[in-house]
C-alpha cells in the first residue's frame, strides 16, 4: 500500500509538472478547450501499466490541484467534466486496443475531453452557442490525442516492466 501511494504520488507530481509546463505554452488557437494535454501521458501510462483505479485517482488529484494553482471555481467545473468524460472513453477503450494502439485510445479520449468541456460550458453559461465549437474540438483532440498517445506509447514501452 505504501509503495502504491508513493508510486502514484510520483506520477501525480510528474503530471502536475507537465501541466505546469503546458500552462506556459500559449495556445496556438484561441478556442476554449484547445490544448496539447501532455499531462494526459501520465494518465495513459497509469491506465495501461497500473490500472483504471490508480489512473482515475491520479487524474482527479491532478485536475483539482492544477486548478488550485491556476484557475477558478468555474474553470474547475470545465476541467473536471472534460477530464471525467475523457477518462470514461479511455476506460472503455483500454481493453479494446493493443499496447501498439495506445494512441487510438488517446485520440478518442482527447476528443471526448473537448466534448465534455463544451457540454459543461453550455450548462454553466446557459447557452448552446458554444456547441458550435464541438467539431473543432474533436478535430483538435484527434491531433493532440495522436501526439500525446504516441508519446505515451514510447513511455509505456520503456517503463512497462519496471513500474508495477
Amino acid at each position: 500500500m505504501a509503495k502504491r501511494i508513493a508510486r502514484d504520488g510520483v506520477l501525480l507530481a510528474l503530471a502536475l509538472i507537465l501541466y505546469a509546463v503546458e500552462a506556459q505554452i500559449p495556445s496556438p488557437v484561441p478556442v476554449p478547450g484547445v490544448k496539447l494535454g501532455i499531462s494526459n501521458i501520465i494518465t495513459l501510462a497509469a491506465m495501461f501499466c497500473i490500472g483504471p483505479a490508480d489512473a482515475l485517482c491520479i487524474l482527479v488529484c491532478r485536475i483539482v490541484m492544477g486548478q488550485m494553482f491556476a484557475g477558478n471555481a468555474v474553470s474547475l467545473i470545465y476541467a473536471v467534466s472534460g477530464g471525467l468524460l475523457s477518462y470514461l472513453v479511455m476506460y472503455m477503450l483500454h481493453k479494446a486496443v493493443t499496447h501498439k494502439q495506445i494512441w487510438v485510445c488517446s485520440v478518442f479520449s482527447a476528443a471526448a475531453h473537448g466534448v465534455g468541456q463544451i457540454l459543461s460550458a453550455a450548462m454553466v453559461m446557459k447557452t448552446t452557442a458554444v456547441f458550435i465549437y464541438i467539431p473543432f474540438l474533436v478535430c483538435s483532440g484527434i491531433i493532440t490525442g495522436l501526439f500525446t498517445g504516441l508519446c505515451a506509447g514510447f513511455v509505456i514501452a520503456r517503463i512497462n516492466n519496471n513500474i508495477k
Binding site: P30, V31, S75, V124
Partner: peptide, 19 residues
C-alpha cells in the same frame, strides 16, 4: 481571440461565463 467580425466563431470567456 481578437476581433470577431463575421460571426462564425463566438468569442467565449468560459471562466467568466461570457459569450
Amino acid at each position: 481571440h481578437g476581433w470577431e467580425s463575421s460571426g462564425g466563431a463566438p468569442v467565449v470567456c468560459a471562466p467568466n461565463k461570457l459569450v
